[in-house]
Design a protein around this nucleic acid. Structure first.
Lengths: 116, 116
DNA sequence: GCATAGGATTGATGATTGTCAATGCGTGGT
DNA sequence: ACCACGCATTGACAATCATCAATCCTATGC
């Protein structure tokens, strides 16, 4: 059975997110842009529900997301791509199916950037 | 000296944000919409820098935001309104000036909703 | 090789958004 | 009463985005 890791280019570097906190010091422009991109990925209701579905199940196939989210296949593909580019999801292709997992470190980095 | 509390209608109820975590159980549609709205308010670089400016200084006048953010007065007014409607900023009018403070509880609620 | 199935990509469309010029609205000082 | 100042609102415009139909790509099974 073919099992291939899919490397999605991540838009936001982890380093930018991990060390600064909004509440401590005034945010510089580049960091604000990068944090804004990740938060934009999280600001859509469909993507939030998608992410929580994957988190709750540990691992979910793309084909099992259309029904609970009530969206078409291209739309699901679009949203998983956005979340992956934001570093929030990691995808792995197994045969014909695409399996998704959450990247817990990324969520933790966001919480930290938000003053956690 | 006139000192008037300005009540900005908040779009997102605190109750919706405080108790559920994305990583625990699948997010329901209404909660996803409300959390999405708050995160959308945070997803703009100018608003992130504005919020961190207010947080760092404790209290900031609208007139002192245009220069460091490099935006026009109507744009600053627009962004403070968005942040206030999301419950992240609280404004107080003193004479001709508008003073802003952060609502730390709201940021904490977001972090909790994000799995904190 | 050929057919099939799942996912990605493209193109198009309607909706939302960030920005600023112009204007309106209160407040404070003269 | 008047003017000046700070902020809010309106209108307009360009850019971005969510969505889906149609199509392409790739892996599996026969």
């Amino acid at each position: 059975m073919a099992r291939r890791k899919v490397n999605v280019p991540i838009d936001v570097s982890v380093e930018e997110l991990c060390c600064s906190s909004i509440t401590e010091a005034p945010l510089a422009e580049p960091e604000a842009v990068e944090l804004g991109r990740v938060l934009a990925a999280l600001s859509d209701p469909v993507r939030l529900r998608l992410l929580s579905l994957v988190a709750a199940n540990g691992e979910v196939c793309s084909c099992d997301l259309e029904a609970p989210l009530g969206k078409s296949q291209p739309t699901i593909s679009h949203h998983t791509k956005v979340l992956a580019r934001a570093g929030l999801l990691v995808g792995e292709r197994r045969g014909r199916w695409m399996w998704w997992q959450v990247e817990p470190d990324r969520l933790a980095a966001i919480r930290k950037a938000l003053g956690g």
